[in-house]
Amino acid sequence: MSTATTRERTAVFEARGLTKVYRLGEVEVHALRGVDMELYESEFVVLLGPSGSGKSTLLNILGGLDVPTAGTVRYREHSLTDDDDAALTRYRREHVGFVFQFYNLIPSLTARENVALVTEISPSPLPPEEALELVGLAPRMDHFPSQLSGGEQQRVAIARAIAKQPEVLLCDEPTGALDVQTGVVVLEAIERINRELGTTTAVITHNAVIAGMADRVIHLSGGKISHVHDNPTKVSAHDLVW
């Protein structure tokens, strides 16, 4: 499925002229400077770029966590840029799964409860146990975040993101805080979700090796897309080495 060509497929996201300027202390940061892009159904895309290239900002805007200063984003037939906070919240709740670099688990809840936190507000979720099974954490689901390793915590975060059966899975440096072996396990989990559930997946990284597992790679630099390339020779996460 994910290996099929992308030409005739429906675009899940369509962004035009995205610009984002925000203030950081006393500095004005131009995070995005006019980005046009699409994301297609069921594809696995890697957004590659050095830090400060604008990739996190782009992902946050696609996920409805942030709004652009200028430009438009459409999610299927729906314009995200016209949405207010309530509409964006509903959009996130129903369609988007997030994985963050620092997991952002709720420390006072166990793995299972962290997943349940999301399934309880979703229209058609997987049972939390099943979601944890998918990331290989069924045996540890009653552990608190502080009792889990970094990789395990990130897999809980992935289970939490996919348990709502989102149409898109957005991962921001999911392996950024992890060592190689753990990173691979996490990436395998993401790969499996993409493959088995057909979830459109976008992964941000500055690690070029990870691009090897993508259908398509979008390179960003200085807040612009420098180039996009298809990756016909997709490798499994298992075979990645860095």
Partner: peptide, 15 residues
Amino acid sequence: EQIAALRAFGYTRWD
């Protein structure tokens, strides 16, 4: 941060 995370998962301000 926790509030932000909850919001990211789709919890409303009201929730």
